[in-house]
């Protein structure tokens, strides 16, 4: 690995006071950014500079900073979670950038993800989709059954696990030219559809989750495949196809 150095960068960042204000792109200059720092540390550095200048720091979402919570929703240089694939923004490092670069940072753009402030968007639409059907019934009467007592083919278990790796970050929606949430919903439908435990609610699950998805104002998938490429967890388009099959089965029932 090459040694860390310091670079000077220009930032163009979306600033918006609150949900109802208009917002615009603002330009900032930030010097002496270590290429060893993470992208979010760079933003921390910018905010320190802004606070010292008695200006309002940039609001952005983050929590775990290790790629599992899905909070760090930044659209960087025209790509969800920035350059590099298979990562969230918190896993992006400044070594991906060069001295003198101009970096655009924007919030997820979707009717269903309204901006709350600056780069922070409201992703509760995903929660409502999940609540519409993303659950299974379990027996809570005390006679708990060991999870492994129901046999599951290895292939199905693997596919369900891959689907369940979705962290609900919303990069698929942000990157899709149609603002479609079908990769997310496809993953959530698949993770249950593949397992025996998920069969009980299978019919209503897919109908209700898709209805909620449409009501939230997400667009319609046209199979461009951009979501699959930008998804930090490698969720594949096969999950959308599976949802489409499940939906057809449920609709004719």
């Amino acid at each position: 690995m090459s040694a860390a150095k310091n670079i000077n960068i220009n930032l163009k960042i979306w600033r918006q006071k609150n949900a109802s204000s208009k917002g615009s792109m603002e330009t900032y200059k930030l010097d002496n950014v270590s290429t060893a720092s993470s992208f979010l540390e760079m933003l921390d550095q910018l905010n320190e500079q802004l606070i010292n200048e008695k200006k309002e720091p940039v609001a952005f979402d983050h929590d775990c900073r290790e790629g599992i919570c899905g909070m760090c929703s930044l659209y960087i240089n025209g790509r969800a979670h920035g350059p590099d694939t298979g990562i969230t923004t918190c896993q992006l490092h400044m070594r991906m950038f060069n001295d003198g670069d101009t970096i655009y940072i924007e919030p997820w753009r979707s009717k269903a993800f309204p901006v709350i402030k600056d780069l922070v968007v409201d992703r509760t639409a995903f929660d409502r989709i999940q609540q519409a059907g993303g659950f299974v019934s379990v027996n809570t009467s005390g006679n708990t059954i060991d999870a492994n007592s129901i046999p599951v083919p290895k292939d199905d278990a693997d596919k369900a696990f891959e689907a369940a790796a979705c962290i609900g970050c919303g990069a698929c929606v942000a990157t899709c030219k149609n603002g479609s949430a079908m990769l997310f919903v496809g993953a959530k439908v698949s993770q249950y559809a593949l397992l025996p435990q998920g069969k009980v609610e299978a019919t209503n699950r897919v109908l209700n989750m898709v209805r909620q998805m449409d009501e939230e104002g997400f667009g319609n998938c046209t199979n461009t495949g951009a979501c699959e490429i930008e998804c930090p967890k490698g969720i594949s388009l096969e999950n959308i196809a599976r949802m489409n099959r499940e939906f057809l089965k449920a609709s004719v029932k």
Partner: peptide, 12 residues
């Protein structure tokens, strides 16, 4: 419909 799903576009 798909255009409406993104009322504000990206700068980049």
């Amino acid at each position: 419909q798909n255009k409406k799903a993104r009322p504000i576009g990206y700068a980049k």
